[in-house]
């Protein structure tokens, strides 16, 4: 059992607060992604769980052990670093075996585990090489194999794919998902790439300004952002936001149209670009730029003077200057409190 519980963890670097009282529980064998822009505190949180950084306050529990005062090696974790940290003076075999040697595991068991994980990561033919003779992708595989060979309860990954080129990243992403699903580990994975987060995660913790804004499944985070930030950070293109003025009880006027919304003193209207379809009565959007992407066309427009994007069927070919009427799908409309930025 390796449930991870983070209780009120905060971290100050001098006068800068990197983490504000973070609470998070990660279930046993769950794949949790910490997602956020650079500087949001996601890597700091990961390093606190790893023991490479000490929290200013708060507790970290792995299973039924409180680990925040323990050194990294007593926490039952393995880690994959952003720059791989594959030791240049050791062969691939010895790199994968490093943690096992530190545990003084018998040679037969070391060989068995190294061979097994190397096969799993398809690097069995590289075992005698040094890191200087490997490509970036191969080094990444060695780093993952080294972590898996420990058969740890928890694997921590710090932007493991960010140094790979786009094609390789896609390939490794699918492979990582497969390999980790087959192991019994709880995974915490840090990334700034929302596509990576969506495709890998059981749950995503979206972080901003040292706080967890929302922790939920990928679809939930996408469909029902708990805060305006989540909607604007996740999705490419991001969610559209339009100001709304009250038009009677639970009625809001947006871009000349009236929509049923929440009963609140103020609200902001939000809709994802793909949740719009052309109609005769929708929001009037003045087209600025048209970008055909193959299956769909991305239209950048303005609605009542506010920027607005729509993803429409590519059979429709609007021109800049045209006015498109875009009707939002009623069940996909979201409302936010303009003060607190939280979902209504």
């Amino acid at each position: 059992m390796a449930e991870i519980r983070i209780k009120g963890v905060a971290k100050d670097f001098g006068t800068f607060t990197a983490l504000h009282d973070v609470d998070l529980t990660i279930a046993d064998r769950e794949f949790m992604v910490l997602l956020g822009a650079s500087g949001c505190g996601k890597t700091t949180l990961l390093r606190i769980i790893a023991g490479l950084e000490t929290a200013t306050k708060g507790e970290v529990w792995i299973g039924d052990r409180r680990v925040d005062q323990l050194p990294p090696r007593e926490r039952g974790i393995a880690m994959v670093f952003q720059n791989y940290a594959v030791f240049p003076h050791l062969t691939v075999f010895e790199n994968i075996a490093f943690g096992l040697r530190m545990k003084r595991m018998p040679q037969a068991e070391v060989t068995r585990r190294v061979t097994r994980t190397a096969e799993l990561m398809h690097i069995e033919q590289l075992l005698k090489r040094y890191s200087g003779q490997l490509s970036g992708g191969q080094r990444q595989r060695v780093a993952v194999a080294r972590a898996l060979a420990m058969e740890p309860e928890v694997i921590l990954m710090d932007e493991p794919l960010s140094n790979l080129d786009a094609l390789l990243r896609l390939e490794m992403r699918a492979e990582l998902k497969g390999v980790l699903a087959g192991s019994n580990t709880t995974t915490i994975y840090v990334t700034h790439d929302q596509v990576e987060a969506m495709s890998l995660a059981d749950r995503i913790s979206v972080m901003n300004g040292g706080k967890i804004v929302q922790a939920a499944g990928p679809v939930e985070v996408y469909r029902n952002p708990a805060a305006r930030f989540v909607g604007s950070f996740i999705g490419n293109p991001p969610m559209n936001f339009l100001s709304a003025s009250p038009a009677g009880a639970g009625q809001w006027q947006v871009g000349g149209q009236v929509f049923a919304g929440p009963e609140a003193p103020a609200a902001e209207f939000a809709i994802r670009p793909e949740d719009l379809h052309p109609s005769d009565t929708g929001l009037p959007a003045e087209v600025r730029v048209v970008e055909p992407l193959g299956p769909h066309t991305l239209v950048t427009a303005t609605v009542a003077g506010q920027p607005f994007r729509a993803v429409i069927d590519s059979t429709l070919v609007p021109r800049p200057g045209d006015v498109l009427h875009l009707a939002p799908m009623a069940d996909r409309i979201r409302w936010f409190n303009p003060e607190t930025q939280k979902a209504l």
Partner: peptide, 26 residues
Amino acid sequence: PKEYGEAAEVFGASRWQRFTRVTLPM
């Protein structure tokens, strides 16, 4: 690079082992 020392730390090396197995060879 300090990541090597951190990797060794996470993978179970004591302070002395980090010195003899990572720092000295490098």
